[in-house]
């Protein structure tokens, strides 16, 4: 359990060195990233942002962690996120401008279903033909991006948008708007969904037979088959759940913070969630904490960009380092590094 904390510390040091090479004050940069969003003068503005950024990360990472525990590697959450957003927005726009209470719940279902179906593509291909879910799910991200571009330029384009790409803004459609539950808190329905997902995942893994089977499959696949676990069922369940949660995350985003379907709607939550899942040790509570930490680097990174003129690529490198050091430290706790003298043959 100490390794994630250690990984964060090592990342700070290595990140500081990186920032120094970029000619930025390292200590200050670290302080801006980790401290300012929480405790600076303008923290009241940044704190809600933490929830907004953290919720999709946690929601997606929870779904991914189930599969990762069982050795099922869904790398395509980004695609499932996009398709979920398109489905959710599609539901809303189909009913526009009808005013009804059931539109938003229907959008949630639509988003979940969209992500679920998109994840079923790698799942069914794996179950039926033994394809590699890593490759298929990853490739489908790029397909989803093309669909997103097509939708924002075509089918879902705002008819009153003066020809600009992008859909109507759902924030201005009350029945479909994923508004804050408490104004100014950043707490929208996606945050609530993420918290519920954490609780459900915790119960599933610790109290339910299916969760036991997931853990068993990850620990000892042969013993799992002996116990009677059906690998195919598990693939469908894990990919399906991850897809549905990612789809919901996309839907909450498109109907709330983002507001509209646009070409550059997706910002990489689906990939960052992989880091969050591992940083959180694939444990629901860990993922909650890791999601908060990753959201912090997002917000802090933005502050660093505006305040210190830090290039955005530097922040992405910084986030990548976190996963790199976590995996490296894991490696070093399991294996001992030894310098071998090369013998002469």
């Amino acid at each position: 359990m100490a390794t994630p904390v250690l990984a964060v510390l090592v990342t700070m040091v290595a990140g500081g060195i990186l920032f120094a090479f970029l000619g930025k004050p390292p200590i200050e940069a670290i302080r801006v990233i980790f401290w300012d969003p929480l405790f600076s003068e303008f923290a009241f503005y940044y704190r809600p942002q933490l929830l907004v950024k953290g919720a999709p990360l946690v929601l997606i990472a929870i779904g991914l962690s189930l599969g990762f525990r069982a050795g099922i590697w869904n790398i395509g959450a980004e695609g499932q996120y996009i398709i979920g957003a398109l489905s959710g927005a599609g539901v809303a726009l189909a009913f526009y401008p009808l005013d009804a209470w059931w539109i938003f719940p229907l959008m949630v279902l639509g988003g979940a279903l969209g992500g679920f179906l998109w994840a079923m593509i790698p799942a069914l291909l794996k179950v039926k033909f033994g394809t590699n879910e890593i490759l298929v799910s990853l490739m489908l991200v790029y397909v989803a991006e093309k669909i997103l571009a097509s939708m924002s330029l075509g089918l879902l384009k705002n008819p009153e948008g003066y020809g600009f790409p992008g859909s109507r803004n759902l924030q201005q459609y009350p029945s479909a708007h994923n508004a804050e539950i408490f104004t100014g808190s950043g707490m929208h329905w996606g945050v609530a969904a993420a918290l519920i997902a954490v609780i459900f995942a915790y119960i599933l893994l610790n109290r339910h037979m299916l969760g036991f089977q997931i853990r068993l499959t990850g620990e000892a696949p042969r013993a799992a088959r002996f116990a009677g676990v059906s690998p195919a069922r598990l693939v469908l369940f894990c990919l399906g759940t991850a897809g549905a949660l990612a789809g919901m995350a996309g839907m909450f985003e498109v109907s709330g913070p983002s507001g509209q379907v646009s070409i550059d709607f997706n910002v990489g939550y689906g990939f960052t969630a992989i880091i969050v899942a591992f940083l959180g040790r694939l444990h629901p509570i860990g993922i909650l904490l890791a999601g908060a930490l990753m959201a912090l680097t997002y917000i802090g990174g933005e502050i660093a960009q505006s305040k210190l003129g830090m290039p955005s690529a530097a922040i992405q490198v910084f986030q990548g380092m976190l996963l790199f050091f976590l995996l490296a430290l894991d490696m070093l706790t399991h294996f001992r590094l030894r310098l071998a003298a090369k013998g002469v043959a």
């Binding site: 109290r207 068993l216 000892a220 013993a223």
Partner: peptide, 29 residues
């Protein structure tokens, strides 16, 4: 194969005993 190495003996008892010993009810352990 017969047992999952890193799981506890309780969990390993569950591995084959879940149904016959009534260690699950309604899917919950």
């Amino acid at each position: 194969h017969a047992a999952a190495p890193d799981m506890s003996l309780t969990e390993n008892a569950l591995l084959t005993g879940a149904r016959r010993e009534g260690l699950v009810s309604g899917g919950f352990l």
